[in-house]
Structure formats: C-alpha cells, structure tokens
Amino acid sequence: MYPHERSLVKQLSDKPFSLIGVNSDKDVNEIREVSRAKNISWRSFWNGPEGTGGAISRAWRVRGWPTIYVLDKDGVIRFKNVRGAAMDEAVASLLAEMGHEVKITHEDHDAE
C-alpha cells in the first residue's frame, strides 16, 4: 500500500487532495518512528492505545484493515474500499468535478 499511496500523494501535491490516515498501531511512539523510516508523509489520526479497538474505528464500524473511504470536497462519502487503480479513478473523478483534470500514473515499482 505505502508505495501506491506515496505516489498518489506526491502526484496530487498541488491539487485539492489529502490522504488522511487513521492509524491503529497501539504504540504511538513506535509508529511515529516507522512512519519516518518508511517515508509515510501523510497525516494520520491515532486510534488510541486500544489499537484496532480504538474509538475512531469503532465509531466508523471498521471491520477490516485497511478500510478506505473516499470523500468529495463537501465531505460526502462517494466511494468505499477502492484500492489501487480503482482508488486513482475515484480520486480523479472527484477532482474532475472540481475542474481539475488529472491523469494519475505510477512507476511500475511504485504501483505495487
């Protein structure tokens, strides 16, 4: 996941787009280090010391990890659990609604 998401974030850095995580690791210090080491540049909420049992994922009834929601500019849920190329398409379609035509491509080694 990381390379695809990294690539997406990088390509859309000048577009009205954000990738927001909800991280479910129990140890926040450890995941902070891991994020730095793995070059995870996007911002995440921390789900708390209960890990996957934390308050945010409970409120969102998350059952599987990862779970993906794609929201439009008004905060409306438009897509769920899209991965890879489907995620790219979803994001591109919502940016197009805002007048930003983007073509998302990934280097082979990025898109795994």
């Binding site: 990862p66 439009d72 994001v91």
Partner: peptide, 20 residues
C-alpha cells in the same frame, strides 16, 4: 489536534491502516 472536517474543500482519501 485536528479534525477531518478541516479538509472540507478537498478530495479526501480516508485510510484506516496499521503497520502491525
């Protein structure tokens, strides 16, 4: 501290993830 609604006006991919 921050809120999801801080990102209104942008397309958002919300990703529930873990490195465990």
């Amino acid at each position: 501290a921050f809120k999801l609604s801080d990102y209104r006006g942008k397309v958002v991919v919300l990703d529930f993830w873990g490195d465990w």
